[in-house]
């Protein structure tokens, strides 16, 4: 095993990018659950409740989609070398997976009856 060449290194904060996609999914889950609980407890009308749930969902979907777009347009930073490329594709993978998950788990439920 020989020595490492000196490429500019992928910063440690790149690791933090592995989290935002699924953090936004979890945030959507929590916000929807909380809004539903509060709305039902305080007697919001079905229309108001459904609208607020949909708004929360759309905001989170837009945020994940936005992050995906930013990462996809930016592409892997060539100066970060092989590690940067690897992390870039993992980040994209988490964002795509989170987007699919948020749509599949939370989308259809908005068509169900609320508070019963």
């Amino acid at each position: 095993m020989g020595g490492e060449t000196g490429a500019r290194r992928a910063p440690a904060r790149q690791i933090l990018w592995l989290a935002p996609g699924f953090c936004l999914w979890f945030s959507a889950l929590v916000v929807v659950y909380v809004l539903h609980s509060v709305g039902c407890a305080f007697g919001w009308s079905a229309g108001t409740l459904r609208l607020s749930l949909a708004a929360a969902l759309i905001i989170h979907i837009a945020a994940i989609a936005g992050l995906w777009r930013v990462q996809a347009l930016r592409g892997p930073n060539p100066s970060f070398g092989r590690t940067g490329v690897f992390l870039h594709w993992i980040i994209i993978g988490t964002l795509v997976s989170a987007l699919a998950k948020i749509v599949l788990t939370l989308g259809p439920t908005l068509f169900l009856s609320a508070c019963t």
Binding site: L29, L106, T109, L112, C115
Partner: peptide
């Protein structure tokens, strides 16, 4: 727990 909440936990559990 209300149906709507049951539904998204159910879907998540399957996915």
């Amino acid at each position: 727990i209300p149906h709507l909440a049951l539904a998204f936990f159910s879907t998540g559990s399957a996915i």
